[in-house]
Simulated assay, not measured.
Amino acid sequence: MALFTTAPKSICVLRLSAIGDVCHAVAAVQAIQKQWPTTQITWIMGKIEAQLLGDLPDINVIVFDKSTGFAGMKVIWKQLSNQKFDALLHMQLALRASALTLGIKAKYKIGFNRKRAKEGQWLFTNKKINDTASSHVLDSFFEFVYFLGIKKTLPTWKIPLAEADINFAHQQHQQGKPLLVISPAASKDERNWLTERYAAVADYAIQQGFEVILCGSPAPREVKLGNDIESSMNETAINIIGKTSLKQLTAVIRDAKVVLAPDSGPAHIATTQHVPVIGLYGHSNPNRTRPYLSKDTVISVYEKHVQEQHNKPLNELSWSTRAKGDHIMADISVEQVITMFNKIIAK
């Protein structure tokens, strides 16, 4: 039974990080807005994530910088001290996020059911979603809004982009030429594909008449990876790694015909812009973390490796089980990626 049969006055959403996860969460939050436009929504999110979503229409975004620790929590609590929400959607399993809920007043504090509530999250909530079946993170976030009383719906995304961001994107590449965006870096280097293989696919795309943009964060390891890919190429790519804001990056991705990426934030940003993603997966379960609209274009060696490492069939492993090792991504070939690229552009 739904928690609310009419629109509640106010809801607080707690999902601090990461970029991919807040891209999943925004679809769920905007589903609430569509059905209950009068409900006031406050969203507590991380500092980096707010660079992408801090200007969402009709949402009060409160930024929590996790590096500020307990002092930062007290600032949030003071900011919300005069407010009691009808419901708090506690969508993050980390203990730090659970600690933050202690100073937020809400009639209902809703979390994951005990089967999935890692790090003791179930101790910090008084209502639990029923869901144990959904494998994808986005589907589990939607279970929160269905629990509230939102009707079943397909996810949609509206992330505001300024004219300046769109113009920036247009200036990075020739208009009229199709664009492949390669975001080569995952959160950990072992999850990256091989440098020379990114280069080979980039060369192939350029030979098919595409322009290729390399994108990513200013982290030194990402900058180095981009430079190494460029050095391994015969053709010339446009390298904007470390040279964009998250909004500018979103606008660049929006211009693409195809995005190539491992399990990473830009892969999920592409989903919000309805751009098909060739997702490269080896360490995490693509059924759980793939770009949501790109199920048929994921290339995965996860199943093989996780079953070998745990000596169990996939259906007997936890949905969040990871495969480990620096060698895994080498099992994805250039030929597989080019075949998928051709399949997408043929459409």
Rank of each mutant, 00 (worst) to 15 (best):
Q175W: 00
I299C: 00
A27K: 00
E163R: 11
K243T: 05
H136T: 08
L16I: 14
L214N: 07
A87W: 06
G20F: 01
G265W: 04
H136E: 09
R197W: 09
H310P: 09
S183P: 06
K304G: 01
K304E: 05
K9G: 14
K152Y: 12
T195S: 00
N287F: 06
R116M: 06
S135N: 15
A25Q: 04
K107S: 14
H90W: 00
T125F: 06
K109M: 12
A199V: 13
A31P: 01
I32K: 05
Y146L: 09
M329Y: 01
K295V: 04
T244G: 03
T101S: 15
Y302F: 14
S333P: 09
A186G: 04
K324V: 08
K247L: 07
S232A: 15
D58G: 11
S318T: 05
K343Y: 02
S187Y: 03
L88Y: 01
Q248L: 06
P276E: 03
T195P: 01
L314E: 11
L180G: 01
H173M: 13
P8I: 09
F147V: 04
I269C: 05
T244M: 11
S183V: 05
M91Q: 06
V259H: 00
G46I: 07
F210G: 02
K243L: 06
A25H: 00
Q336C: 06
V201Q: 08
V26I: 15
G265V: 11
M340R: 11
Q336N: 07
A185L: 02
H268N: 04
K224P: 04
R288M: 11
A200L: 13
T39W: 01
A18T: 14
T339H: 12
E163Q: 14
S67E: 14
Q336I: 07
P155I: 07
A251V: 13
S320P: 00
D203H: 00
K127Q: 15
K84G: 01
A346S: 15
F147K: 08
I345Y: 02
P57C: 10
V275H: 07
T153E: 09
N167V: 11
L148I: 10
P286E: 09
E211R: 02
C12N: 04
M329H: 11
L138I: 14
A106Y: 06
V334D: 05
N239Y: 10
D203T: 10
H90K: 08
E316I: 13
G242D: 09
G111Y: 01
K47L: 10
F341P: 01
L148C: 12
E196Q: 10
P291L: 04
E49P: 12
N192V: 02
F124P: 11
